[in-house]
């Protein structure tokens, strides 16, 4: 589905991504872990065309490095940013409409179905996005991206600031989304959710992938966790 090879990216002169390699298969949930500031968000932003890429990014067999963000989105790659950019002055329903790429809902999702999957949002369809709780905003942001019917989503730190119970819910939802054939790249700092739902995971440190494995192997690799993840 997605194959990133020797990806480099810069902010001005600082060399943030220094040769990142990883891949995500069809229907897989893959996590990208790492400490603050190692370049996980930069990785997804670069894939999305928000930061200029150097290297190769293949999505569904097609080279997308150098394409514009909206073109990449049209190819079926969705991105849920870490700042949860919901539009506070638009209603929940309008936020969802914003995610649609054409006038008619198509593909896997439509608004009513989305509401049945996310009952908290259903009740608040006409409420302004700004009035939602953090967890609801995160769900909305995710639903909005799904409305564009992506084949893969990259979701950046969805659990940040959420209560454990909501994190639990989110994990189930991600699982369900993957069951519908949407591949997921989950960028996380919390090990718990990543270990629970991912099939494979990568650990990033200082602009490079420093570990690749499965949840089981990572649990055993104490040295990796000690050096590259929070203790």
């Amino acid at each position: 589905m997605l194959k990133v090879s020797d990806l480099h990216a810069y902010y001005g002169k600082s060399h943030i991504l220094q040769g990142v390699n990883f891949h995500v298969g069809e229907g897989e949930i893959v996590s990208l872990l790492g400490r603050n500031g190692v370049g996980r968000s930069t990785t997804v932003k670069t894939i999305m065309g928000e930061v200029a890429p150097q290297g190769s990014i293949e999505f569904k067999g097609q080279e997308i490095a150098g394409k514009k963000s909206f073109e990449i989105a049209h190819l079926g790659l969705g991105y849920v940013p870490e700042n949860r950019d919901i539009f506070p002055s638009l209603t929940v329903r309008q936020n969802l409409v914003l995610g649609m790429k054409s006038n008619k809902p198509q593909g896997r999702w439509n608004i009513e179905e989305m509401f049945s999957m996310f009952p908290n949002l259903a009740e608040r369809g006409d409420v302004h996005g700004g009035a939602l709780s953090g967890g609801e905003q995160q769900m909305l942001c995710m639903c909005r991206t799904l409305m564009g019917d992506p084949d893969m989503i990259m979701i950046d730190e969805p659990t940040e600031g959420l209560a454990p119970k909501i994190v639990e819910q989110l994990a189930q939802l991600l699982q369900e989304i993957a069951n519908r054939g949407v591949s997921i790249l989950l960028v996380e700092q919390k090990l718990s959710i990543a270990l629970k739902i991912s099939k494979r995971l990568y650990v990033m440190g200082h602009g490079k992938i420093v570990y690749e494995g499965t949840p089981e192997s990572l649990l055993k690799a104490d040295d990796v966790r000690g050096e590259w993840l929070e203790v």
């Binding site: 539009f87 002055s89 638009l90 914003l98 649609m100 006038n103």
Partner: peptide, 24 residues
């Protein structure tokens, strides 16, 4: 209209709107 919603959002958050597949 949907176009109006996109315009409103594009004015304040152009990159987010582009990421959703709209040609800002």
């Amino acid at each position: 209209s949907r176009v109006g919603i996109i315009i409103q959002a594009a004015i304040t958050h152009p990159q987010t709107v582009a990421n959703l597949g709209h040609n800002v």
